[in-house]
Write a protein that binds this DNA or RNA. Structure first.
Lengths: 99, 99
DNA sequence: TTGACATATCGGAAAATCCCGATATATATT
DNA sequence: AATATATATCGGGATTTTCCGATATGTCAA
């Protein structure tokens, strides 16, 4: 777990917003309902809600993934992103005791 | 507590390093011994150890203070900085549950 | 294979951050 | 008041980040 990389990933309003939305996919991305939420939410849904371009959202999600805050799952032509709660828990403990 | 401001403050190797040093002033800043550590460590001590210029360290400490991660105490011509553990605890809990 | 759709990557302009040297301010000493 | 010391602020070049449009890649359907 790269502290600095994580904090950089968290240093952006849009990325924080996305992470927050992913806490409750059912509520925040109802349009995806029919496809289920097991693997997370696909890029297009997030892009629509974020109001940023497709390329920007894709890059932001890659940034979040590289830092370990989310995981990506490719299913057909879609890539689903979901939170990696283990990293959040580890970060919380790190701040509590190590930083 | 401004999340984004805190994460930005934590997104820098030198600032993370300084915060870490301030966890144990006695060990990391022994030269200050005769003046005590009650109010924290003065800018000059931190600057020396960080190997950055005085202006840069002063600005970094101001950044950390504005985010609430440290507090500053002016005593004579010195400004002492110490960690604000309440903010660290609050941030840890925030990450655990709210972000 | 061709076309449609979802996502990733590339190139870059604008804004922010990094970190410096120079200078200003505040305090203490003589 | 003049000098010395500690810190803060200013101006700016270099680097990084932000976010875009254009383009490439990958997958499915006809």
């Amino acid at each position: 777990m790269d502290q600095l990389e994580i904090f950089k990933a968290l240093s952006n309003k849009s990325r924080l917003q996305i992470l927050n939305w992913l806490k409750d996919p059912e509520k925040n991305f109802p349009d995806q309902g029919q496809y289920g939420y097991d693997n997370g939410v696909c890029v297009g849904q997030i892009q629509q809600k974020a109001g940023l371009t497709q390329s920007t959202v894709s890059e932001y999600l890659t940034t979040l993934q590289r830092s370990g805050l989310v995981t990506a799952t490719r299913v057909g032509q879609w890539t689903y992103y979901r939170r990696n709660e283990e990293t959040f828990a580890a970060l919380s403990k790190l701040i509590e005791s190590d930083i």
